[in-house]
Amino acid sequence: MTYHPFQIYGRERKSRWLITVDHASNHVPVEINNGDLGLAPSDMERHIAYDIGALGTSLRLGELLDAPVIASNFSRLVIDPNRGEDDPTLVMHLYDGTIIPANRYIDEAEIERRKEAYYRPYHKAYGELVAEREDPIIIAMHSFSPKLNGRASRPWEIGILHAPQEDRFSLPFIERLQEESDLTVGDNEPYAGHLLGDSIDSHCFSKDTPHLNTLIELRHDEIDTDPKQNAWAERLAPMLNDVLERTGL
């Protein structure tokens, strides 16, 4: 079977929504050390390798919003599609206390090969999907660990990341989530805003008129099974539509 560095689900769907999953997979292509980064299988199942539960949640959300879903098909440890090409963390040598053996002595030639083989094809397809839509609304779906090594537990079930240059949708969405009495909602938590050159920056903010977008972070113990993923998608879809209707964007 031919390897593809991304998958598009429901490309024929025609709503304004587009769902992206930068860290959908923990797959390591066979060209990289015979498909092995030198980590234990248990490490490849951790959050360091991919965003646990993000793909399943996104696929159900795409069905509910009539939205295509684009998902990477390589581990973030191979190369991180949610980083700019010149970001020093584009290929991680160490993540949450774990050394990545296959990346430890990586040279510029191998980084360039990974950009060309995995990173750039994903972003080319991402850009094409954005260009196919009039007034797109991009939902970037991620998940985060309940606790990093040596850090405090994270109380938020969901966090919304946004940047001041484009928060027309994100801020009303945070307000809508805060109406839910059982949720602790992170406003630019557990991370702050967007990074220069990251996916949202590249595909939304680099335009003359920034595209509507929001980046959703779900704590991965909230979406680590199929039923939980479906439940969150079914909860989020009507809220996203509600915010769109309320704001008239």
Rank of each mutant, 00 (worst) to 15 (best):
H142S: 04
G53H: 15
I139T: 05
N188E: 10
T225A: 04
G56C: 10
I174V: 14
E222W: 06
H194R: 02
H142G: 07
L244C: 11
R60M: 14
T214Y: 05
I100N: 04
R120L: 15
S58K: 02
I19Q: 04
L37Y: 11
E110K: 06
W156S: 05
L195N: 04
V28P: 00
L177A: 03
H93Y: 13
P164I: 14
T247V: 12
E245M: 08
I48E: 12
L212C: 00
L148W: 05
Q7T: 06
K207A: 06
P155D: 15
I174S: 00
E12K: 14
F144A: 01
T57S: 10
E110A: 13
V78H: 05
E189D: 14
D182T: 06
V30K: 00
R11W: 11
D22Q: 02
A54H: 04
A131V: 01
N33V: 02
A163M: 02
G159I: 14
W156H: 08
Y126T: 01
R176K: 14
S181D: 12
L240H: 05
A67P: 04
T225D: 03
G127T: 14
M44H: 01
V243C: 08
Y191F: 13
D201C: 10
F144Y: 09
S170E: 08
I139G: 07
Y9E: 05
H23F: 07
V30R: 00
N26H: 08
I139W: 02
M92A: 14
Q229P: 03
P5G: 12
E85A: 15
E166P: 00
M44T: 15
H162W: 11
N241G: 12
D187Q: 05
I139Y: 06
H194F: 15
